[in-house]
Design a protein around this nucleic acid. Structure first.
Lengths: 252, 252
DNA sequence: CGTGAGTTTGATACCCCTCAATAAAGGTGG
DNA sequence: CCACCTTTATTGAGGGGTATCAAACTCACG
């Protein structure tokens, strides 16, 4: 939007060594973006379409321009475990022994750069600076995966929903869509497969938050955070604070 | 041991593009190892000692020679969430905005290479090949973090224990300590903090596996896998197979 | 041999999963 | 634009598994 026309692949993350407060920085220089454009093509993927399946030969790496992607594994019992949701300026499709280690599917309509793995490797092996930027992004993704594990470690449904909403909010704010209304691009069952609960529990959780006045629904796929403090509090406290917002204090 | 004397920092992982079956490959060339040795010092950390705390300035990166390390976050409710256990040939201590994003502590006595962050960055920025090897290792760690999330996604205590034991076994086999007896270097409560259950549930889970004849205890910190097939089966099946090994079939 | 941390065992409560049904939303064609 | 259908979301009731609290026990270490 405000960025003007496409200037080539874009990767954003928190830098390894700097103090860019809570802001994602563009890791690639204009020159690097131009160089990557040479090997990149633009892919348009429709909502719900699979981009690649787990185990397929890893022939290309993707960089999202717009839209949301999920990567997931199909577990032995046929259920779907979502590894991560990816947004604009994210990178995905890195290989493991030449194969994709998970499946990828478009959650919304997606536009992305598509870079052949071989060509990208060539560039990387020649350009130490570019590689360093990729390392930075990978460290970022690693931390995100660890945060996901922390989310899954919480045994409280409301805590998980709180952490999930915070995650969405950060992604949205980092990409400066700065309203306080959080868009929820994925279905309840996608959320469920990510936070490790049933879709019903997700629905109940969100509705409970709304009934306590912590969040407010614009519609089914958008919420507004009314009380960030209490949302944060849900993460730590085992059993929930008083349901009634306008009470003065609890018994204990 | 069989490797002879130390030849400098060692990083092993499954390569991005190759077919090195189930075997970890040494990513660094002899030359790279020699170069890294120049900036590395050897650190000896006693069992139980903290290596660095979360939030501390990231001044050094570590590469384990021997021993086991855990990285963890202390959550808001003072409980400890373990991100990962690290073994020989692993790398840890990468920064996030100049700070460590989690704490590290020696689970056993540890010997490790210690490389100042600044010096390592210098090397990386000059050497594209070395950087590529680091990227490979990071991809490997990313997949491990995602496997951890998959473990945490399983709501069955026995499934989690099965996955955890498989993880330990793979680490042990990859470093060719090829007995079928798995050493468990960490405490029950460390396991609990990693698999997202209580220490009691961990104890019960292991004992249940033993009573079913799937594993066998050498002592409290070592088990032998008797029936890998049924261990694997626990991961998929929601409710467990028949407790009695020598029964012919269940009713349904 | 004593001490304390680490581990195991036991009983109860609670939270979420499961199954099932209803309600709302989104998309399609008449 | 509305009727229809499919998908998605919500609500309800019951059962199971694990956390929690508490206590007995084992082991490593001095």
């Amino acid at each position: 939007m405000s960025e003007g026309k496409l200037r080539g692949p874009s990767i954003k993350a928190t830098p390894l060594w700097s103090s860019a407060k809570r802001e994602l920085a563009q890791l690639l220089t204009d020159d690097e973006r131009a160089q990557l454009t040479v090997i990149a093509s633009i892919a348009r993927i429709k909502k719900g379409a699979q981009i690649y399946p787990e185990g397929h030969d890893a022939i290309a790496v993707f960089n999202i321009i717009s839209g949301v992607v999920k990567t997931y594994n199909v577990l032995e019992d046929k259920s779907e475990h979502i590894n991560t949701f990816l947004f604009a300026d994210d990178l995905f499709g890195l290989a493991d022994e030449g194969k994709y280690s998970n499946s990828a599917r478009a959650v919304t309509d997606v536009v992305a750069y598509r870079m052949p793995t071989a060509a990208l490797e060539q560039k990387l092996r020649r350009d130490a600076t570019l590689e360093f930027h990729v390392i930075t992004k990978l460290c970022h993704e690693l931390r995100e995966a660890q945060r996901h594990a922390i989310l899954l470690d919480h045994h409280n449904a409301l805590a998980r929903m709180a952490l999930f909403l915070q995650l969405l909010e950060q992604h949205q704010r980092a990409r400066e869509l700065a309203t306080h209304t959080i868009e929820i691009p994925m279905s309840r069952s996608d959320i469920a497969d990510y936070v490790g609960m049933s879709a019903e529990a997700v629905s109940r959780g969100l509705r409970t938050l709304a009934s306590r006045g912590i969040i407010e629904f614009a519609h089914h796929r958008a919420v507004k955070i009314l009380d960030p403090g209490r949302l944060e509090g849900l993460v730590s406290h085992p059993t929930a604070p008083p349901p009634h917002p306008h009470r003065h204090a609890t018994a204990r």
